[in-house]
């Protein structure tokens, strides 16, 4: 287990290298003179020169790359010129909102999705199976950001049960926090539970057709034990794969959904930065979200080993 973890951590190094390189190059892709955009129309030639120097725009690309990696190793992601503070502080301060939103959604999607999938597989070829699968397919065809707006119209504007947007910190008012998070989390979950439901169903169908399940049933074991203890545990590997893929989709979905629900997470930070052309924030937000995803993928791989003892080396 430990040896696998070390191997997995090492193999993240080339991935992180590509991630940081791409993030660096994004700034270089911007056409035209960025300093003019940052400075605005009132900027004097001296102002523009100062901006270029601060961002290193007057240096050749390789020198800027060296500086980028040098700063990176010291944990410095640059300075935001519109917020006038360090990028890493601004992003880390907002990360908990994004993570809790994506995490809640992942939890909801996994629970509902797996239940739907198990139901469909146990009642294979009945109306329940078909109903669950149609629900799943419709769910995964709905654009989540739009569904969020529909939810706001329904529960915020028409029924008035929940706020139409905004955020209350958990520490301040837990009920207010729950009220501000329930719609966004549910919105994100509803579009992804379909993917989990479909995978669970097909993985369960594979397992349920096997001899040992028939044996377990034949010796009079309770249906619930057969399904959850014997079948589900062996169907977990493909389900975990999908949960891993989905955690990425949910992370980026959270970024978009935050804009819809006006939640102060990394996503709103990035989108705001795009409007203000604050590139260091865009780079920092992108880089940190990607790092979170790389870390989540490592966790997913560890979960494989957990659920499939054949992969353990028992040291």
């Amino acid at each position: 287990m430990i040896r696998f973890l070390i191997y997995r951590l090492l193999s993240a190094i080339p991935v992180l290298f590509v991630v940081t390189l791409v993030t660096f190059l994004i700034m270089w892709l911007v056409p035209g003179d960025i300093s003019a955009e940052i400075g605005g129309i009132d900027a004097t030639a001296a102002d523009l020169q100062a901006i270029r120097e601060r961002l290193g725009l007057d240096q050749p690309l390789w020198e800027r790359a060296l500086r980028w990696y040098g700063d990176l190793f010291r944990g410095d992601l640059g300075h935001s010129y519109t917020l006038n503070r360090s990028v890493i502080d601004a992003v880390l301060e907002r990360l908990p909102v994004t993570l809790s939103l994506a995490g809640l959604a992942l939890l909801l999607a996994t629970i509902i999705g797996m239940l739907l999938g198990i139901l469909a597989s146990v009642r294979h070829n009945t109306w329940m199976d078909q109903g669950a699968m149609v629900t799943a397919l419709v769910g995964l065809s709905i654009p989540d950001f739009w569904f969020g707006i529909v939810m706001i119209i329904l529960f915020g504007v028409w029924l008035g049960w929940l706020p139409t947007g905004g955020f209350v910190p958990l520490a301040e008012d837990p009920v207010g926090w729950a009220r501000s998070m329930v719609l966004p989390a549910f919105t994100l979950a509803i579009t992804q539970m379909g993917v989990i439901a479909r995978m669970t169903r097909s993985a369960m169908l594979d397992v349920l057709g096997q001899d040992y399940i028939r044996t377990a049933r034949a010796k009079g074991m309770r249906a619930r034990t057969v399904i959850f203890r014997h079948a589900l545990r062996n169907a977990m590997i493909p389900i975990i794969t999908v949960v891993g893929v989905i955690s990425g989709v949910l992370l980026s979905g959270a970024v978009v959904i935050e804009t819809v629900f006006s939640l102060p997470g990394v996503g709103r930070l990035i989108i705001g930065a795009i409007q203000r052309r604050d590139f260091p924030i865009i780079q920092g937000g992108l880089l940190i979200t990607a790092c979170v995803f790389v870390f989540v993928n490592i966790l997913v791989d560890m979960a494989y080993v957990w659920f499939d003892p054949r992969g353990r080396d028992d040291d």
Binding site: F17, V30, I270
Partner: peptide, 19 residues
């Protein structure tokens, strides 16, 4: 693998914003 480490459409958002 490196490109896939950017979750979902986040990379597309950043690229479109830069371009």
């Amino acid at each position: 693998d490196g490109l896939m480490a950017f979750p979902g459409v986040l990379l597309a958002i950043a690229l479109a914003a830069a371009l």
